[in-house]
Design a protein around this nucleic acid. Sequence first.
RNA 1: GUCCCCAUAGCUCAAUGGAUAGAGCGCUAGCCUCCGGAGCUAGAAAUAGAGGUUCGAAUCCUCUUGGGGGCACCA
Length: 554
Amino acid sequence: MTIRHQLQQAVVKRVRERWPELADPPAVVIEPPRDSRHGDYATNVALQLAPALKRPPLDIAQEIADGLMKPSLGTVEVAAPGFVNIRLASDTLKRVPAAILREGKQYGTGDAGKGARVHVEFISANPTGPLHLGNGRGAFLGDVTSNLLSAAGYKVWREYYVNDIGKQVETLAESVVRKYFIRQGIVMEYPDHLYQGGYVEELAVKLKLDGAKADMRKLRRRVQSRVLNLMLADIKKLVEKRLGVRYDRWFRESELYAQKLDAHILAKLRHDGLVEVRDGAVWMKTTQFGDDKDRVLVKANGEQTYFLSDVAYVNDKFNRRTFDRAIIFLGADHHGYVGRLKAAAAALGHPGALQAIIMQLVRLIRDGQEVRMSKRAGNFVTLDELVDWVGPDVARFFFLMHAADTHMDFDLNLAKERSEKNPVFYVQYAHARICSVVRKVEGLLHEKKGVGRRAQGAGKVKMVRGMFGEPEAKLARVLLRYPDVVEDAAAALAPQQLPFFALDLARAFHDYYDRARIIEGETVNQTRLTLLEATRQVLQNCLSLMGVSAPEKM
RNA sequence: GUCCCCAUAGCUCAAUGGAUAGAGCGCUAGCCUCCGGAGCUAGAAAUAGAGGUUCGAAUCCUCUUGGGGGCACCA
């Protein structure tokens, strides 16, 4: 249990004991104050209690503060207008680095999620062309949010929903097949409504067809799945190999139909009285669950809508696979779907269990002008190209720093500059610097033990305990924050808190490193070395959650 | 027309309703006989506008202005 948890429990207990008459006490929030002069943690609970108790908040704060903490752990003081501020004792902070090293990779993980099963769906772009920058945003935010939830004690399942049936896939197949024949010298039209990007050509090169004489319509059917698989293979390679995004499953829409889940869900909704026939079409009464209009499930011409698949998929998540929660990352151009998806979850017995994260669109700027990207026109910048240009770490960090609801402008002209001056290097440099010091210490020790070449002449390395003063405490305070950051970021589904924490930590380290030497001649300051090793561990853990590499040399 | 998102330093972004709004890049002035200067220190610089709620508002509410997106028996 973290120090913050302990404090939180102590305050809750105090409030309950002191004012048992309160039916609905406010939630106790312990947070680090912005200004370190107010201590290491603070709570505003006295201010929140004041109206109900009809007493001055300062008096309430004092009653909460008295005897809250053992003096050996830290001190408690009250401050106007009614804060309770907690300052950790130097001895408490002194124990932090060794504790972190004992926990190792586990440091920062918690059990706030209590093992609840969360389904996270992200990207889910139609496999009809290469992924673009907006998909990259979904890829990184989805991946890291999943990592965060896992670290916070949820059981996370990551999924890419593949729309492998429907008109867009048919159009892609036709595009590739026509290119295939044109390549073979067969005169053939290539209409405008087909996909125009260069990737169509690339797929056509990979396509192998026998029986070229077969008629177009039959051929299209037969090669459709082959084309789709080729496209999907490209996407998987990018996402899993280059971007390092992990999925538990690539869920195909066609699986729903193979299992007749569409018919199943229709029957279920009919049975529950949630559909009606109007103008020859079958509608789901989603307005009963907060949607702004009802939605068509089966068109008058008998075709099923995409929304029917969606409902079947939602049902599959909650009722067949029994997830407790579902999170979906969607681009802003899909935000109109949120209402109906939530309505579907509610209609299927899981109100509030489906959460959508709307990511605002990424605008591409080139030469000061917005570039309109279109898959069909093929004039867009792909995620592949971005990663070619700046590398996966920079791309990740860049996207992760932006909260989902930020409208991003991506300036191509600045991209290279931004990549060279990207703050990710600042964080990685801190890690590499620590590794360098540790290597140096190990080198000294080896020489002493006779492993090194100059074993005889190496002199005596002395490991001494240094004092743990204010500079050390300052860095330790940042290290101590990490588990709280993970917990809070997971609760708020706010992965951008990780890169900003990483920057804070790197800054605290660089500052410390500049003023405190670990090695003086042949004397190694053990206290400082341990502090640095703990810093390295936290940097590694944080970078690992973000999916960014932690290089030992740069 | 209507609904959703956004507006914070010159630029790109942070900040569960808390105390003196933080970084990076850029700018100004300093710091290498020393473990990695991809670093450190100091400085100038911001909550679009007007009301409201609150002990307390960048954050919540209303209106205004300016951007982006959605409003299919498309997928």
